[in-house]
Design a protein around this nucleic acid. Structure first.
Lengths: 125, 125
DNA sequence: CCATTTGCCATACATTGTTGGTGAAATCAT
DNA sequence: ATGATTTCACCAACAATGTATGGCAAATGG
């Protein structure tokens, strides 16, 4: 019954984890944008994904009191549940394997160092 | 126009890349299983995903001649196209950010070293 | 020539991801 | 106090992706 997260779900869980106790819609969206650049992410996509993750028991949420800032209405905070931690752990391990496999061949892509291989795949017609 | 790969598509592209000129259905499936453990992956899932990736122009394929092994019928080989390389590059960079973010908090998950944080998120009711 | 092996592919369905919004609650300026 | 602005939550409808299951074809060995 392991959960096998989708790409977006993985990003959302990672955002929640890294935001610790400051994880609510807006901050989660911002963090997700950072993680996924240059992909575009809409706020709505974040909220519906949060709903589904909560339905599955991977995260839980509660409403805060409003804060005394301009426009500061009450926020819905999120945290990982045990199930979500396990799913993310597994999923992050896969992300690592993917990243390492790619890096072995192309070099450190995130640093823009993309080395090109010397071989060229045979491609008969 | 950026392609924003799904999780599975990312795995398949990574498998093709790492298999260089030995990338066909069966080997791609095997590699995908390694990358995604402990997730289960069916061969059928691999083939349909290959079809869709080819439709989108991320990969291309051609049929080989049969090999002289028992049951060795002709294979459909795959290679990354330029579009697929760019999509994978971008997607791998995201995978890296996810993994690093998680690793910063939990430690090296893939090595099973999972350190626990000292704080515990406040969770009002 | 038939059982076995290797491999490709289709159908049908379930789950995820995206777009493009709506509208509430709070503060600020006038 | 009323209208503009900001912060934030959420929804509906759809598009894209992922999974399960199983069939079929081509080659070889006996």
């Amino acid at each position: 019954m392991s959960e096998s997260l989708g790409q977006f779900e993985q990003i959302i869980l990672t955002a929640i984890l890294s935001l610790r106790d400051e994880a609510y819609g807006v901050t989660i969206h911002e963090k997700a944008v950072q993680l996924a650049t240059p992909r575009k992410i809409s706020p709505g996509a974040v909220y519906i994904t949060l709903d589904r993750l909560e339905d599955k028991g991977l995260i839980s949420s509660w409403l805060s009191d409003p804060t005394p800032e301009r426009g500061g209405r009450s926020k819905r905070f999120y945290r990982l549940e045990a199930l979500g931690e396990r799913a993310l752990e597994e999923s992050a391990a896969t992300a690592r394997r993917v990243w390492e496999t790619v890096a072995e061949i192309w070099g450190d892509v995130a640093e823009g160092v993309r080395r090109r291989p010397k071989w060229s795949p045979a491609r008969p017609r």
